[in-house]
Design a protein around this nucleic acid. Structure first.
Lengths: 339, 339
DNA sequence: TTGTAGGCGTTATCAA
DNA sequence: TTGATAACGCCTACAA
């Protein structure tokens, strides 16, 4: 690999002059600059980041740690959001996964330390508390989609309560009163928060919230769930007074609600309206009719997490903001207005 | 950050001794080692990768470049496959995306050079030829899910022909004869290869391939497609002699085939069998009945791409293997045996 | 506007 | 078995 020294030799100037040009350090005559630039590009020189860093310059590496075990398409958007923010700072993203193993997580914090990353996003694929497995890590850490139990780390999370509110409010506004709910497992924060948001929407609309219309769409424990929305929805839709709408905990549940409705000969949205959550385009744009849903803004979460890193660095000890990113409604064709 | 020098001072030995212990460089007495190790862990020392690299040690960074614009969940598995292979080599993955911009791609090759990555996977989200945008990049590059037009770079791609064969053969074996096809856009390699595989399966079974039962499930150009499978499938399923099975270009198409069948009051698999492609668990495991499909082995592709990097390095100039990864059948409940 | 000297944290060489 | 010293490529401080 070509070094600064080599370029300097070829251009007949000193190392420092080349360095100045590479770093736009002003104080170089236009002529010298033009001349040296020619040699830089003809020799295809790029600075050695490692050497730069050694000299005390901040690392151009940024870390993303995920806990994913299963295949979750969310992470793609989160990564892209982070990349988009990092581009502007000329930083590159280092990605690692713990696979949920605490030992591995510890090693990975060492890996990040060893690369002197300037900041880290720890992204959990479940909106839940998480304790960082290496308290010695000094750089700033931002939690994405989860938060620290002691609230001592900044975190950036989807506004699940607002999302739940939006789901319910949209349907109430369109005249629905008998609204069924097929939820995620109750152990996760999202479920609790969304329920709270929905109740608020019901209260504001002066409609009573009917708990008899609520069902779990997932069985099993956190990280080991199986989807049972199809069966519970068939049951819901066969009640004497059939619900006019179903609010789903995610788009996969919505997919099964579509299947359940079809199995009973019911049409969407004529017979039942369906509201999703997540906006997994793979599902929401593919279903017919297309799915009206509430989006999980993972791109924004990734983007803001990186931006939060800088402020996190200048934080007062112990003060940790928890930033909520709104979950916007994405209106498509699966909900109808009731006469 | 604690340095080698500091640990050495605390332990009362020379830096080289500490270095030897950190690197398992033998030739250290058990007693010294134990003593120094205590100081290493108590001071939470980790080696500075940048400094290591400067000393000429190979970088512990590996690059992954993707061209994705849209949200494609495939990449998650590819990343995890790559990570899994990299773990064993104590390397960490640097991820960048070109967003399809050649200028950006060029910059990113420079970024990789500048970090002295030991190898790179260039992963296209479409199985297509791709010309690397920086011929000056010296380290070994492996193409994943695409190949070099001049065949001068090793590549690792799904066996689409085999996948198409599997789709058709499975249905033929189960007695299906009137088999419809709802395909991806014809411009991509995958479509051509799978069609070839299917024809082979038909030929082997002595069944005539009926082109009248073939439809495009996607409209538009590469990277700018819209899915129209729902409409074309409704048309297919309303023919006088209705097909008994539908082979799909991907699982999203299969999802629309389910919707189309439902809209006509047809049951799967009693009235129509459906065969997917990709095995996006989000869809394949969520549909009811669950989808029988052929998996795109992205985890394996990621894993093997990393492994290929080493052999790529020792390659004879001009010789570039193209490795096919099999696409295995994932049998679920959407295909039935015909009497 | 340009150049020289020194050191960042490692590892390799060679000596003790 | 251990240690002193010199590099690696770059940037900061200072000098010309």
């Amino acid at each position: 690999m070509v070094t600064l020294r080599e370029v300097a030799k070829r251009a007949g100037v000193s190392i420092k002059t080349v360095s100045r040009i590479v770093n736009n350090d002003a104080a170089v005559s236009a002529k010298t600059r033009a001349d040296v630039l020619k040699h830089i590009s003809s020799s295809n020189y790029v600075p050695n980041q490692a050497a730069r860093m050694m000299r005390g310059v901040e690392s151009s590496l940024y870390g993303l740690m995920t806990d994913v075990v299963a295949t979750t398409p969310y992470s793609v958007d989160l990564v892209r959001g982070a990349q988009s923010a990092l581009n502007e700072k000329h930083q590159t993203l280092l990605i690692v996964s713990t696979d949920g193993d605490p030992q591995r997580e510890h090693e990975l914090w060492q890996t990040f330390r060893s690369h002197r990353v300037t900041g880290v996003i720890y992204a959990a694929m479940f909106h839940q508390p998480h304790e960082i497995g290496n308290p010695d890590f000094q750089q700033s850490i931002v939690l994405a989609n989860c938060f620290a139990p002691a609230n001592d780390r900044p975190s950036i999370i989807p506004d699940d309560e607002g999302g739940g509110y939006t789901q319910a409010q949209y349907l109430l506004q369109r005249g629905h009163r008998r609204i069924a709910m097929v939820t995620l497992i109750p152990e996760i924060e999202a479920t609790r928060l969304r329920a709270k948001g929905m109740r608020r929407a019901f209260a504001e609309a002066g409609v009573e919230f009917d708990e008899m219309l609520e069902r779990r769409g997932m069985a099993g424990q956190v990280r080991n769930e199986t989807i049972i929305a199809y069966d519970v929805t068939r049951e819901l839709l066969q009640q004497k007074r059939r619900p006019t709408a179903v609010i789903c905990g995610n788009d996969q549940i919505a997919l099964q609600v579509f299947a359940a409705a079809a199995s009973l000969g019911l049409s969407i949205p004529q017979d039942v309206s369906v509201m999703g959550f997540d906006d997994l385009k793979l599902i929401s744009e593919t279903l017919r009719p297309q799915l009206t849903t509430v989006a999980l803004p993972y791109f924004e979460i990734g983007r803001q997490a990186v931006e939060l890193t800088n402020s996190a660095r200048e934080q007062v000890e112990g003060w940790a903001p928890r930033i909520l990113v709104p979950c916007p409604l994405v209106e498509r064709q699966s909900c109808r207005v009731l006469a």
